[in-house]
Structures are given as structure tokens and as C-alpha cells.
């Protein structure tokens, strides 16, 4: 059997498959179904400084080959995540976990990351810069290179753990933002977050989602995600984590050929809770089919 292991920012992963934040909670719902230690790691639910209920419902809309969500970063706040969620997580997952962090100001990010940095089980900090900057007129941090770099610097200053900046695809030039994060000290880049989308109910003639718009994810966005991963991986020296519509072992390999060191799986978990395990178990077969002996050898192979 070929080798599935990869090294993500200095930490060895048994395989490159990582359930994406917001689709895997803190792991224990899935741990009821299978041993989640089969995963490379997982990125836990986006955590903020303060508790958040999130947006009004409906928060979910179905699309052709995908879905829209406008959950709005519901989470109990970093203190409760540390005191209540992480102990439960530890009981079903023994590997380093990826901590996903969001914020509404640079100080928010630094506060949350500083607390999570102290948690032994946290291997990486994945910093989501797609949130609106309340001090910056509500524009997302991830849409401006300077703002994304400011978040990166602030987080790097409070942690020794690898910092992976998670980028939004809703920008004109994702490469310049990725480079700004790299220059500011980021250890890795993950992309893509969801694409801004919308559905309208023909009966009510109103948006399906209470928030009107939300993040579109699922297999439909895979080609867009792949293209952006390819562009960013070609422009930066740091590792790239690819995600967006991945739902098969073939998709994982395609993302890696585009330049991804590891691959996150999001929306697919919500439809088939076993999908990440199934992908991991299917990878050796697909690797053999395409004569791949070690996954780490194919990273960026399409460049």
C-alpha cells in the first residue's frame, strides 16, 4: 500500500484528509459513528472571543450540487470551548487538532488565538479572515491584503503554533492576499472558504435564507476551488490546504496535484457522515490506479 502521510507545517499527518470547520462540530457527533482517529486531523467549529448564537433561521438552502449556509459562526465562545468542548474532544480524538478561529477585530483574533495557543491538543491555528471587520466598515479582513496581513501578524505574535490563514474566494485577486499573509509570517494558507450565494423561494418571492445571502459550498464549487488552490500554491512557498467541494479520493488527489499539501472536506460530511473515513479508505485504491506510491510526492505535480 502506498504512503498517505504528509507533513503540514511541521506536524506529520497520517493522511491528508481533514474535515473542514463548521461541518464537523467538535468531533464527537461523528465519533459516535466511527473512530475519528482515522482522520489526518479535523478543523473544529469556528471559535470566537465571545459566545455567538449566530444568524436567524432559515440558515440553510439547497442548491444544485451544493448548499448555502448562513449559520453566522454560532459557537459558545473561546472560554467555553476550552472548558467544555475540548475535554469532550480529547475523549474521542488523540491527535493534534486544528483550531479554527474567527474574529471581528484584530484584537479579537489575537485574544482567541492566545487562549487556544495554550491548549496542548491544538496543533495548528486556522484563522478565518472571511468575517466582517467591525472597525473597518464591515469589509471582510480577507478582502484586503493589508487587513489580512494585520490579522496574521497579530496572531503570529501570540502563538508559537503554526498559523494557517483561511482565505475567502470572494475577492478579485486571491493571490495578492495569500502573498500578503505569507509576508506577514503565515505558516500556511487554506482555501477556499464558501462563495457568497443566494436562493429565492418562488412561493414567497423572498430569499430562502433569513440572512438573504450565505456561503455556497459543495461539489459545484470544486473547479473554482481547484483553480484558486493552483494559483495560490504557485505563488507562495508555504504549504497550502485545499478545500471546496471535495467529496472523493479522486478529488483529494486532484487538489494535491494542484498544490495542496492537505485537503479539507466540508459540505460532503453533512450528507454522508462517513465520507472522510470512506475517502481515506479509498485513497490506496485510487493511488494504485494512478501509480502513486506516496501522496506527498504528488503535491503540486500539475505545475
Amino acid at each position: 500500500m502506498g504512503s498517505l502521510s504528509v507533513n503540514l507545517c511541521g506536524i506529520e499527518l497520517d493522511n491528508p484528509v481533514i474535515p473542514a470547520s463548521g461541518t464537523f462540530g467538535y468531533g464527537y457527533e461523528y465519533a459516535e459513528l466511527y473512530d475519528i482517529n482515522e482522520l489526518g486531523t479535523f478543523s473544529f467549529k469556528g471559535t470566537t472571543k465571545d459566545p455567538r448564537f449566530g444568524n436567524s433561521t432559515p440558515r440553510i438552502a439547497e442548491c444544485t450540487s451544493g448548499m448555502i449556509n448562513a449559520v453566522g459562526l454560532q459557537n459558545p465562545g473561546v472560554e467555553k470551548v476550552i472548558s467544555e468542548e475540548l475535554p469532550k474532544l480529547k475523549s474521542c480524538f488523540y491527535k493534534p487538532v486544528m483550531a479554527n478561529v474567527s474574529g471581528f477585530s484584530v484584537d479579537d483574533y489575537a485574544y482567541t488565538c492566545r487562549l487556544l495557543d495554550e491548549q496542548e491538543q491544538v496543533g495548528w491555528l486556522e484563522v478565518n479572515v472571511s468575517c466582517p471587520n467591525v472597525h473597518g466598515g464591515g469589509m471582510s479582513f480577507g478582502t484586503q491584503p493589508e487587513a489580512a496581513a494585520a490579522v496574521t501578524r497579530a496572531v503570529k505574535a501570540v502563538t508559537t503554533k503554526p498559523v494557517i490563514i483561511k482565505l475567502s474566494p470572494n475577492v478579485t485577486d486571491i493571490v495578492s492576499i495569500a502573498k500578503a499573509c505569507e509576508d506577514a509570517g503565515a505558516d500556511g494558507i487554506s482555501l477556499i472558504n464558501t462563495m457568497l450565494g443566494m436562493r429565492i423561494d418562488l412561493r414567497t418571492r423572498k430569499p430562502v435564507i433569513a440572512n438573504k445571502m450565505g456561503g455556497f459550498s459543495g461539489p459545484a464549487i470544486f473547479p473554482v476551488a481547484l483553480r484558486m488552490v493552483y494559483q495560490v500554491a504557485n505563488a507562495v512557498q508555504i504549504p497550502v490546504v485545499g478545500m471546496g467541494g471535495v467529496s472523493s479520493a479522486e478529488d483529494v488527489i486532484e487538489m494535491m496535484l494542484a498544490g495542496a499539501t492537505a485537503v479539507e472536506v466540508g459540505a460532503a460530511n453533512l450528507v454522508n457522515p462517513y465520507i472522510c473515513r470512506d475517502i481515506i479508505r479509498d485513497l490506496p485504491r485510487v493511488m494504485e490506479k494512478y501509480r502513486i506510491s506516496a501522496l506527498k510526492d504528488i503535491i503540486g505535480g500539475a505545475n
Binding site: G22, T23, F24, G25, E29, Y30, K45, F53, G54, T57, P58, R59, I60, A61, M67, N69, V71, Q74, V208, N269, L270, V271, P273
Partner: peptide
Amino acid sequence: QRMGCGFGACMGCS
């Protein structure tokens, strides 16, 4: 409520 996963993972139906 409109649901994403139906098993508690996505927080879509809170």
C-alpha cells in the same frame, strides 16, 4: 426547521 445535516454537526437549525 430547514436542516443541513440532521445530526447536530452544522448548526443550521439552531
